[in-house]
Design a protein around this nucleic acid. Structure first.
Lengths: 110, 110
DNA sequence: CCCATATATTTTAATATTGCAATATAAATT
DNA sequence: AATTTATATTGCAATATTAAAATATATGGG
C-alpha cells in the first residue's frame, strides 16, 4: 500500500507537497543551486558538477520539470534548463503565509 | 540501489532536502496547515481531521518531528504538537535567497 | 551518410515510503 | 485495579524511489 492518498487532500496541499517532494532530494537541491548560480543556463555540465551518472541526473531533471521547478528549451544539440520562477514563488508564498500565521500565535505549551 | 547518496552533497543541501522531503506529502502539509490554523495546540483531533488511520498519522508526525518541523510536549495524557518556527525560517530563507538570485538573472533562452 | 556529443528511455536491482491492523504504552478516571 | 483515552511501535503488503548499465534518439559537423 505504498500509494499516497492524494485524492483525500486539497489541490493546494497536493501542489505544495509535489513541489516540496521534488526539492526533497539533495541532488535536486544541488541542481537548483547550480542553476541559480550560473547566470547563463548552459546546462549539463551538471553531469560534471554532480557525483551521479548521466541517466540518474536526467531522471532528476525530469522530476524537477514535472514538478514545474525547471523549464527547458532545446538549444542545438544541448538542452537549456532554467529554474521556473513560478514554482519558486508559489512555495515561497506558502511559507511566507505559514510564517505569518505562526507569529500571530501565542502558544504556551511548546 | 534505492539509497540516496547523501554524503556526496553539502550539509546545507541535505538539510534543505530533508525539510522539503518532510513537507513532500499532502498529509504532512495538511498537518502543518492544521497546526498553523488552530491557535492553541491541542492536538490529535488531527486524527479526526485527516482521512488516515491513527498509526499512519503518528508516523507522519514522527517524520515531521525528525525533520525539525514540529516539536511536542507531553501534556497530561495528550501530546501537544506545535510547528517549530526555526525549520520554517530556514527553508523560507532558502527560497528567499533563491528567488533573489533569480531576479538578477537575465536568461534569454528559457 | 557517418561520427561525436548531448540527452532521454528502458530495464533491473536495491532500498525507502505509505498505510493499516494489531499490539503496546502511558497517563487520567472511575 | 480496571477502564478509558491518547499516542507510539511493530510487522507486513503494496508501491515508489534511487541509481546505474545498456540502449536509444537526436542534432551538428565533417
Amino acid at each position: 500500500m505504498g500509494t499516497t492518498k492524494s485524492d483525500h487532500f486539497s489541490v493546494k496541499q497536493n501542489q505544495i507537497a509535489n513541489i516540496a517532494k521534488a526539492i526533497g532530494h539533495p541532488a535536486r537541491v544541488a541542481i537548483l543551486d547550480y542553476l541559480s548560480k550560473v547566470d547563463s543556463c548552459i546546462c549539463s555540465d551538471i553531469v560534471n558538477e554532480l557525483p551521479l551518472a548521466q541517466p540518474t541526473i536526467s531522471q532528476h531533471l525530469k522530476e524537477l520539470k514535472n514538478a514545474g521547478l525547471i523549464k527547458g528549451n532545446i538549444e542545438g544539440n544541448a538542452i537549456c534548463y532554467c529554474i521556473d520562477e513560478k514554482a519558486i514563488e508559489k512555495i515561497q508564498a506558502y511559507f511566507t503565509k505559514l510564517a505569518g500565521k505562526l507569529t500571530k500565535q501565542k502558544n504556551t505549551c511548546c
